[in-house]
Nucleic acid binder design. Structure first.
Length: 271
DNA sequence: ATGGCTTCATAGTGAAGA
C-alpha cells in the first residue's frame, strides 16, 4: 500500500497512515531511541506518554530535524504526553474538559483528517486506593467527553497507555494478577464502556501471536520470560477501523540497552 | 518474599510506577 496516492489529495501525500503510541518512561532518557525508532519506522503520528519533562525542556528541534512537528503537554517528574507528526497538527487540546487536573495525561490534535487523542491513564496504584478512585473518575470523565468528541470527529483514534489489560489473554499470569490493579473488573468495565462508544481495539481485529504484551516489569528478568501485560492500546472509530490493515507491537526497542518498560504499538490505515 | 528495577528527586526512614 505504501506509495499510493489519491487524485483528491492535493498535497501529494500518500493515503496510508501509520499511527503509533509509545510510553517512553522519560523522553529525556529515551530521546535517542525515539529518534532511532522514528527513522526506522517512519510513522505519520507517534504519541508519547510519560515524557516526564516540562514543556520548555521538550526536544522540539531534535524532532523537527527528524522531520516531525510536535505538540506536547508536560510536567516535571511525572506524566506528560506528546504527539509527534509529519504534518501540521490542528485544533490542539490539552487535558480533559471539565475535569480539573494538574496531571498532564491527555493531548489531542487533528492530523490530516484524523482526530488523534493521546492518553496516559492513571495507574491506580492498588484497588480501593485514592489513586484507584481517581483512575476510575478519570476514565469516566474521558468516556463522557469522548461521546461528544466522536460526534465532532467521526474519524477518531484514541491511543496511549490505558493502564488496563482488557482480558485475561492480555495478562501473562491471570491467576497471579486476578483482582489486581490494571486487571480489576471495574477497570475492565471502564475499558468496555469506551469500546461501546464504537471504538474498536485495533490489535484484536487481526490474528496475533499468543502472549502478546506491551509492558514488562524491569525486575525479575520479566521481558526475557515474557511476563508482561497488554496495557497500551490503539482504539479506532468505525470509519478508521474499516480501513485498518494491521496493528503490531514492536518488541525490538525493549531489547535494547536502557529500554523503556513499554513497547511501541503501531496501526496502519489505508483508504 | 509486597521484593526484584528504573526514573526523578534529593541526600530519606525515598516515591512512584505497573
Amino acid at each position: 500500500m505504501v506509495g499510493r496516492f489519491s487524485v483528491a489529495n492535493t498535497k501529494g501525500l500518500p493515503d496510508d497512515m501509520k499511527i503509533a503510541t509509545w510510553n517512553v518512561n522519560s523522553l529525556k532518557v529515551r530521546l535517542p531511541q525515539v529518534l532511532n525508532w522514528l527513522d526506522t519506522n517512519q510513522p505519520d503520528v507517534l504519541c508519547l506518554q510519560e515524557t516526564k519533562q516540562e514543556d520548555r525542556q521538550f526536544p522540539l528541534s531534535e524532532l523537527n530535524q527528524a522531520g516531525y512537528q510536535a505538540v506536547f503537554s508536560g510536567q516535571k517528574t511525572y506524566n506528560g504526553v506528546a504527539i509527534a507528526c509529519k504534518t501540521e497538527p490542528a485544533n490542539v487540546m490539552h487535558g480533559l474538559p471539565g475535569f480539573a487536573d494538574e496531571q498532564k495525561r491527555l493531548i489531542a490534535a487533528t492530523v490530516r483528517d484524523i482526530r488523534v487523542i493521546c492518553i496516559y491513564a492513571p495507574n491506580g496504584q492498588s484497588v480501593g486506593s485514592d489513586k484507584y478512585q481517581y483512575k476510575l473518575a478519570w476514565l469516566a470523565a474521558l468516556t463522557a467527553w469522548l461521546k461528544e468528541e466522536l460526534l465532532r470527529y467521526p474519524r477518531l483514534v484514541l491511543l496511549g497507555d490505558y493502564n488496563i489489560a482488557p482480558e485475561d489473554r492480555d495478562v501473562h499470569d491471570p491467576q497471579a494478577w486476578a483482582g489486581n490493579v490494571l486487571v480489576s473488573e471495574l477497570e475492565r468495565a471502564a475499558f468496555r464502556e469506551i469500546e461501546q462508544l464504537g471504538l474498536q481495539d485495533s490489535f484484536r481485529r487481526f490474528e496475533q501471536p499468543e502472549k502478546s504484551y506491551t509492558w514488562w516489569d524491569y525486575r525479575m528478568m520479566a521481558f526475557r520470560r515474557n511476563m508482561g501485560l497488554r496495557i497500551d492500546h490503539i482504539l479506532l472509530s468505525a470509519p478508521l477501523a474499516k480501513s485498518c490493515t494491521a496493528c503490531t507491537i514492536d518488541r525490538a526497542p525493549r531489547k535494547q540497552e536502557r529500554p523503556s518498560d513499554h513497547a511501541p504499538v503501531m496501526a496502519e490505515l489505508a483508504d
